[in-house]
């Protein structure tokens, strides 16, 4: 079982690598941000698999922090992209 979990983590790393190609290529800032967001979620999944693989559940706290802060960079990005830089894309007409 344990070997399977680690193998699954390797596959996830590979999918993260694929998503990184989108970060590199763009073309827009939004594309890069989306790629990073997907890599972030993949990272959460990898940590969960590592924790289950090692039976070290303290590692879950890392996944908890990552998912708690998952939207941070994106929120900062959309705010910076709003009209005055402090707003929200929903406010704009």
């Amino acid at each position: 079982m344990s070997g399977w979990l680690l193998a699954a983590a390797v596959v996830l790393l590979a999918t993260a690598a694929a998503a990184l190609v989108r970060v590199a290529r763009g073309p827009d800032a939004a594309d890069r941000m989306m790629g990073a967001q997907l890599v972030g979620t993949t990272g959460v999944a990898v940590v969960i698999l590592l924790a289950a693989h090692e039976g070290n559940w303290a590692m879950l706290d890392v996944a908890l922090v990552l998912s708690l802060l998952a939207a941070f960079a994106s929120v900062a990005f959309v705010k910076a992209a709003s009209r005055d830089g402090q707003g929200d894309p929903e406010e704009d007409p």
Binding site: G43, M59, V62
Partner: peptide
């Protein structure tokens, strides 16, 4: 942060996750 987790250094991984993936991102994007 994943690397630190894999190495079993969960304390460092936590700090890296919160600072590196969290606060620094907001700071640099801004």
């Amino acid at each position: 942060a994943l690397a630190w987790t894999r190495l079993g250094a969960v304390d460092v991984a936590l700090a890296e996750a919160a600072i590196g993936a969290g606060l620094t991102g907001v700071l640099l994007v801004g």
